[in-house]
Design a protein around this nucleic acid. Structure first.
Length: 114
RNA sequence: GUAAUAAGCUAGACAAUCGCCUGUUUAUUCAUGAGCGGGAGGAAAGUCCGAACACCCGUAUAAAAUUAUUUAUACGAAAUGGGUAGUUGCUAACGGCAACCGUUUCGAUUCGUUGAAAUAGGGAAAGUGCCACAGAGACUAUACUAUCUUGAGCAAUCAAGAGAAAGGUGAAAAGUUGAAUAGUGUUUCACAUUACUUUUGUAAUUUGAGGCUAUAUUCUUUCCUUGUCGGUGACGGCAAGUGAUGGUAAACCCUGCCUGGUGCAAGAACAAACUCUGGAAUUUUCAGAGAAAAAGUGGUUCGCAUGACCCUCUCAGCAAUGUUGGGGCUAGAUAGAUGAUUGUCGCUUCGGAUUUAUCCGAGGAACAGAAUUCGGCUUAUUGUUUAUUGCCUUU
RNA sequence: GGAGAGUUGACAGAGCGGUCGAAUGUACCGGUCUUGAAAACCGGAGGGCCCUCACGGGUCCCGGGGGUUCGAAUCCUCCACUCUCCG
């Protein structure tokens, strides 16, 4: 789980990412990225009611994504805002599958440091 | 053994590593570290009811003021609309809960009663509406078949009228149900007498037996009214009466009771400090207009976690529930915390092995996530215990 | 978090408790017209299950369950789903 500092929380920040960012998508995940002026990277997650009507399933998906990002956090370049938008298919997936998908996305974006 | 219903309990446990939100103590570079703590439910859900709480509206009173208005306190009248509906009790309140009453269904019965289940259960004897199709007629009753009387006709039949017993239609047919006795009318049969007739026979009368039946009396039964007894009451028992009322109010409506409106996105403070005009004029307050700001205005803080709270005990009560004493503090996020990966043990399914209750391997563990709080209802759902009823098997 | 509206055939969309499996339009099928098509005109047809070689017949279905009523798409109630609004 990420600290509050590293999450995107403001409406304006989300709008900024949507208007200026580029996007990459994998099986059941879409990623939007844009650079920011801070010293660190920030992450946001959007899961709408259309993904699942049950709050348990939406929270579950969000927690898995955040846990996966936490593990990659040290190797990700700074000064980037990330927004993850999962699709319906994420419901029922376990941590290993989600983690693989996140890793693929980050590699394709070229923002992973070695 | 199995199924249904009702009630109760439960919602795997422990440990390790890496993380998240938060209370408090402490350190300093003042937003970070360290120490000690806390961190989802029985439904947190649906938002179907109710209450607390906050603001607004209206009314009344008081003060300032006396044209308006403002502030404070108290209350929620009337109308409309909405809700609710056996009785008594419980509750902060409820459409909730408990006990009882009535009704219905099923079963048992020694026919006196009794067990189980269900129950939105005021008023149809205040008024209005509706009752399709069928049927003669569906609420100011009516007359199709059949019956009787009168008239027309050779006859078939037609017309007018009577009465309310039967048939038929329908969910429902005019109205309490059934029985006994008396009895009027009508009709069938038998015998006898009289009249007519050649005879067979026909007509009338008496008697006997049978069918249908107006009416009367008695008994029984449903409802209603009155009286009386029991019960706080719903209601029940008994007695009397020249009493007799179709269904529908989850149709309008009537009656009793409840209800002012909006919801924590309520609302308050901070950032945010000012100028001008007008009313009153000392402060203060109200209305209107304007200006200003590093950025931020969908910001931050409060509301917001001591409560109709939880555990245990005493007493009262059939129970719901109330009460006495003791102990406890038990989530508080806001793009929204409670997660990830493992190990051991427990439960359980399948397969294999044999020592027949153990081992090995592969799995499984439901419904579901706080968002102002609480009381209910409803819906979803894992395992298990008890009770009742039904069914099957064995003794 | 809170407040509301709706759900009828393949699609849209009417529908007084009775004559309603249900108006009407689009789409579909057949026919007329045409060399052929379109348009126009005429006619037809909902779905599931059961019986039937077939024709045809029976029964259930207006989002789902339960109730009121002689009778429910319509009235009441409990759910499911879809959509809208509130700083």
């Amino acid at each position: 789980m990420l600290k509050k500092q590293f999450r995107i929380r403001k409406q304006k920040d989300f709008e900024n990412v949507f208007s200026k960012g580029r996007y990459i998508s994998e099986k059941f995940l879409t990623l939007k990225i844009v650079s920011n002026k801070l010293a660190f990277s920030r992450f946001g997650f959007i899961i709408s009611n259309k993904v699942s009507k049950k709050a348990v399933e939406r929270n579950r998906a969000k927690r898995l994504l955040r846990e996966s990002i936490r593990l990659f956090q040290d190797s990700i370049k700074s000064q980037i805002d990330f927004v993850f938008i999962p699709k319906k298919e994420i419901i029922g997936k376990d941590f290993v599958e989600v983690n693989e998908c996140v890793e693929k996305l980050l590699k394709r974006s070229g923002l992973l440091e070695k």
